[in-house]
Amino acid sequence: MKKSFAALAALAVLGSAAFAQDMPKEVKARQGQFQILALNLGVLGGIAKGAIEYDEATATAAADSIVGVSMVHQATLFTEGTDSMSIDGTRAMPAIWENMDDFASKWGDLGTAAAEMQTAAATGKEAIGPALGKIGGACKACHDTYRAPE
């Protein structure tokens, strides 16, 4: 686990060296929000798998953070000309801009799943796994259509 974090960190450094200068701030911001999601999902996933001990405060803090990100309006971050065909360093497909309503509705589904996670986080360890599954479903449903492969 440590190793993969190190690899990620190295990648992040390399990535930022290559892209930091010409990457629009909207792209940096939207990638940052997905990192916040990933870190907090990591806490909840750790609890669900038993690697992190459950306590309500930790689980709720993670769930609240996910809800917080889900409330960020995406149109501000996905501005014209920042798709994967126009610039390097993003996997946001042009289809997003052709279907902004659908994109916004799929982001809304993340909000719904995140709210369910808040309830689950307060309920206990057993409830977190299924709630994570729903968040994963929301991620997947959107990535399926709008995120390019690596």
Partner: peptide, 18 residues
């Protein structure tokens, strides 16, 4: 394969999502 989450909690994309 169950959740679409990688160990770093990145999420599956592209045709693999299906």
């Amino acid at each position: 394969l169950e959740s679409g989450f990688t160990p770093e909690y990145d999420s599956v994309g592209g045709h693999m999502a299906e």
